[in-house]
Amino acid sequence: MIRHMVFFTVKNPADLAAAEAGLKRLEQVSDADVLQVRRNLQRDQLGNEVDLVVYGEFADADKLAAFKDHPLYEEAIALVRPLRDLRIAADVEV
């Protein structure tokens, strides 16, 4: 299984809801076993500037690749890229 995590900050706090809505489109893609888009609770006191978190679980690398090839993935990128400041992604195998 692959866990896929992406952390976002938005350029303008006024765009947070729009960025969240754009990313939530990803929850409709069926290639993930789990896919969640959530606002960061920002409860950690050390360097916690992340606004949004995308968390996904995929059966294997092929499912993750299919997810990234889905048209909704491209739509989400097109909507969110102009609004975001920072994007950090990590994939780990478990």
Rank of each mutant, 00 (worst) to 15 (best):
M1D: 02
I2V: 04
I2E: 01
I2F: 01
I2A: 01
R3D: 00
R3P: 04
H4S: 12
V6N: 11
V6S: 12
F7W: 13
F8A: 08
T9R: 13
T9L: 08
T9W: 03
V10F: 05
K11M: 12
K11V: 11
N12I: 00
P13T: 05
A14I: 01
D15C: 01
D15I: 00
D15A: 05
D15S: 06
L16F: 07
L16T: 08
A17R: 07
A17H: 09
A17W: 03
A18P: 08
A18F: 00
A18Y: 02
E20P: 06
E20G: 01
G22A: 13
L23A: 12
L23E: 14
L23V: 08
K24Y: 06
R25K: 15
L26C: 10
L26D: 13
E27Y: 01
E27V: 01
V29F: 03
V29E: 08
S30Y: 01
S30T: 11
S30M: 02
D31M: 00
A32P: 10
D33Q: 15
D33N: 14
V34C: 04
V37F: 01
R38D: 11
R39V: 04
N40C: 10
N40P: 08
N40D: 07
N40Q: 02
L41R: 04
L41E: 12
L41F: 06
Q42T: 02
Q42E: 13
R43D: 11
D44R: 13
D44Q: 13
D44I: 11
Q45I: 02
L46M: 06
L46F: 09
L46I: 07
G47C: 10
G47L: 09
N48I: 00
E49N: 01
V50R: 09
D51N: 09
D51E: 07
D51L: 03
D51C: 03
D51G: 03
D51P: 03
V53H: 04
V53M: 07
V53I: 11
V53N: 03
V53E: 09
V54M: 04
Y55D: 12
Y55H: 10
Y55V: 02
G56A: 09
E57A: 10
E57Y: 02
F58K: 09
F58Q: 09
A61G: 11
D62Q: 11
D62S: 08
A65S: 10
A65E: 12
A66T: 06
A66Y: 07
F67D: 14
K68P: 08
K68F: 01
K68M: 12
D69Q: 15
D69L: 07
D69V: 00
D69T: 05
P71C: 05
P71L: 04
L72K: 01
L72M: 02
L72G: 07
E74M: 04
E74H: 09
E74R: 06
E75C: 00
A76H: 04
A76S: 15
I77N: 11
I77H: 10
I77K: 12
I77A: 14
A78K: 08
A78E: 15
A78M: 02
A78C: 06
L79H: 12
L79I: 08
L79A: 15
R81P: 14
R81L: 14
P82Y: 00
L83Y: 06
R84I: 13
R84N: 14
R84S: 14
D85H: 05
D85P: 01
L86H: 11
L86Q: 12
R87S: 15
R87P: 15
I88P: 05
I88C: 06
A89T: 14
A89D: 12
A90W: 13
D91L: 03
D91G: 07
E93W: 02
E93S: 13
V94N: 10
